[in-house]
Nucleic acid binder design. Structure first.
Lengths: 219, 219
DNA sequence: GTCTATATTTCGATAGAC
DNA sequence: GTCTATCGAAATATAGAC
């Protein structure tokens, strides 16, 4: 009788395996964020995960398979944030929640965002298929929602596609460029209060910019 | 009598040297943008520049010295764009010109912008000193200008620092993430017309967002 | 100034004992 | 499942002839 759990596929996954895989993923995310795919070494990742290097190759056969898992993780976090977009039909609430959630993710998952940025920067050699399938269809769906709001006269006529790019760039900037932001903040990370102000202002400028009147304007 | 020019430092710089240095810099910018610092190989750069690998080391002793030159180049391009900010005292014109110029640079120098993004993403290991000196003092100066406009009641009260971050992120996104943008555009680069529309919209949303009335609103 | 050949280092991946 | 020892590939940098 095995002491480990058996998953739905009939494969076994011991607690040790789960723990190690998790530690490796977390270490990989931070090392890939710091050094990029090629700059990261499996030795560094193993060291940060607290295991010998060969064990890393035991759990993830190649460096690329590990990298791909890290990229998929942040992408799925963002996809869930997109629910803010569908859960309600009011542009003010939907946009406010979506932008706020994306800012929160930049605060809580800066490393994942950096790995994604790095991947796109270099032409998406590993996750190009995601861009062409999942991201493309998600984007088209959200564009349709925004176009409906515009037709209803609930916001100014803007190109929804470029509005989405604006939201993505403004929010992810606080993760991807946080080193520059910290340096310009006397080399100290933004406090919770500063970050809250930045978040409020991003929401405020974009909503005002697209002509959505806010019921709870900035103080 | 030498056939080459003599520069102000008394050092000589032949036309051959100038030509090779220029070709290496351009090749390096594109290779570093594609692959990052560590991912780029001096062999690739030399090949793209059309010279043998050892010659590259003759002109630039180390890979890092070459990289630093590339990063300094894009930074100086952006600094010149900042003149748009000082040449006039009207917030509408100054912001419009600054944002437009930054968008144009994203269109004309996507590789330089990517190399910069990559450098910041990884914690600015090479140009940290630039962040702490030139960028910090430039930012403080521009913040003072924006604060003056706010005090004069010519725009809504926003935190100038986070407004600058917004402008930087929205504009540089069209360079750094152009692969993602192209993929979402049916895997075709934005046409001049599409890019012009994106540029107009970035200007429009930000100016409306900060309460600057535009004398030439979008069509 | 140029370029062939090579020294040196580093890292991804694996063999094989436990 | 774990880990020591090591192989083999690749890339930076240089030596030295021209």
């Amino acid at each position: 009788m095995p002491t480990h759990a058996v998953n739905k596929n009939g494969n076994s996954k011991s607690a040790v395996r789960r723990h190690n895989e998790e530690a490796i993923l977390k270490a990989a995310e931070s090392v890939f964020a710091e050094s990029g795919f090629r700059g990261a070494t499996t030795g560094q990742i193993a060291e940060r995960a607290g295991i010998p290097k060969p064990n890393l190759h035991y759990y993830y056969p190649t460096k690329e398979s590990l990298y791909r898992r890290v990229v998929e993780n942040i992408f799925n976090v963002w996809l869930q944030a997109a629910n803010s977009f569908d859960d309600c039909d009011d542009p003010e609430e939907a946009l406010t929640r979506y932008i706020s959630t994306k800012m929160d993710i930049s605060r809580s998952h800066p490393n994942g965002s950096k790995v994604w940025a790095n991947e796109i920067l270099h032409g998406a050699p590993v996750i190009q298929d995601y861009l062409e399938t999942t991201l493309r269809s998600w984007t088209d769906g959200r564009i349709a929602v925004i176009e409906k709001w515009i037709q209803q006269g609930r916001m100014r006529p803007v190109n929804p596609r470029y509005l989405l790019y604006m939201i993505w760039s403004c929010t992810q900037h606080y993760a991807d460029f946080n080193h520059q932001i910290d340096t310009l903040n006397h080399s100290v990370p933004l406090s919770d209060e500063q970050f809250a102000e930045a978040k409020e202002q991003v929401v405020d400028i974009i909503l005002n910019g697209v002509g959505v009147v806010r019921s709870k304007p900035a103080a």
